[in-house]
Amino acid sequence: MNAAYQFVTGPLAWAAWGIFLLGSAWRLVAMYRLARKKDASAIAYMSWGYSLRSIVNWLIPFNALGWRKNPAMTIATFAFHVCLIATPVFLVAHVMLWDQAFGVRYATIPDAAADGMTMLVIAACLFFAGRRLAMPDVRAITTPKDWFALAIVLAPFLTGFLAYHQAIDYDTMIVLHVVTGEIMLAAIPFTRLSHMVFAVFTRAYMGSEFGGVRHARDW
């Protein structure tokens, strides 16, 4: 047990963070170089103002047309994304680990809140899964990759939730939690989760094209 735990929280954690950070940076640089080479016309129209305008407008729930026409999805996806990022970042136990390892301390959220947020993430994942099964137009476009992405995200929250409540076998669960979390980090640059890295740019381009070329909104 100790050896396993030490391995997943030691070398494996370094590897996961390394893959996530370096992988994302490499993907961004590679994509930028590709864009320089072949999407010069798109780069020429990129504008800070229109990019930010579009991003901000899409970050407001029910502001964009797409949000308004898909209300349930809007609630689910906003709750999901906020909790997905905030819970692990501000979780007391995680901050403790930063503190122990690097002496880094910052604000935390109460465990009860984190517990609720985790349940929200799990619930949102179930909602997404339900859509993929129940809605014909979503089912038609769902691929194994999408289930894979969903599973990768669900796993650390589910195991984290079980570990926190020390249900089932704690020792196994905590190792599983660490491993699944690391899988998620490492998967970000190379799976559907790469939208975390690229979405800001695809949105920014669309904002720039609609703002600068069509003189229209894109939300």
Binding site: N2, T9, A93, D171, I174, V175
Partner: peptide
């Protein structure tokens, strides 16, 4: 030897 993880 001995516990390492929080819940232990």
């Amino acid at each position: 030897k001995g516990p390492l993880a929080c819940g232990q």
